[in-house]
Design a binder for these strands. Structure first.
Lengths: 107, 107
DNA sequence: TGCTTCCGTTAGCGGAAACTAACCGTTAGT
DNA sequence: ACTAACGGTTAGTTTCCGCTAACGGAAGCA
């Protein structure tokens, strides 16, 4: 279970450029140059972002010759989704309580 | 003028204190003082965080006398969860493609 | 009316993040 | 072995974020 870094996962997805990288990586594994060519930032920035994403457990690295292929980790994404789902269900439950206690109009 | 969307749910959930506020709010609507009493920050910080969360559409405000009751918005949470779910499914599809192809493939 | 409570706002400070540019190691090809 | 390509790392700057402290405004109560 490498989902202990879910707290960092939110910080990792906070940046827009990083979400763009995740979006590209979700469609298939890619190298650094591939990603950098599709984004308005340099390879250094992409490399640093990938390090953060890898450190958060969201992506995994695979060395192929002189290239590094990065791919998205579905498990970490599912962990964040699950945590978000918990908030969602609790909020729905709180809404249900309010709906029960409001049979009449209040101030 | 800036065209970036200030209502970024991901940036809002990036901060740990803000996630703590969301967690408290998920269990039921509360006022600012209520939340600040449960967190190691002042009311000003909580108020600012609530402003960011409200601007992101994650929480909604309701004025009751001299207090403001804040509550979590399940719809916004579901939207983030859905977006995360899309990444998850795409990553799984990418994994399926790699798993189907034989490991003798070279490039 | 006067007072208290509750909350939002502003100013300012300290720290962290994002980005570019330059450097170095590694790998593949000739 | 030499060269070119790919990628990680570092230094440095700039910008943004989170927090506290102080101030001002609005509602409730005697």
């Amino acid at each position: 279970m490498d989902a202990n870094q879910s707290g960092d996962g939110w910080s990792a997805l906070a940046d827009g450029t990083r979400r763009a990288i995740v979006s590209r990586l979700a469609e298939g594994p890619q190298a650094v140059g591939q990603i950098a060519a599709q984004l308005p930032v340099t390879r250094s920035a992409v490399s640093q972002h990938l390090k953060i994403l890898k450190d958060a457990g969201l992506v995994s690295e695979q060395a192929v010759g002189t290239r590094r292929i990065y791919r998205l980790n579905p498990t970490a994404v599912a962990a964040l989704r699950d945590q978000l789902d918990t908030f969602w269900q609790r909020a729905l439950a709180a809404y249900a309580e309010v709906a029960e206690q409001a049979p009449e109009e209040n101030r």
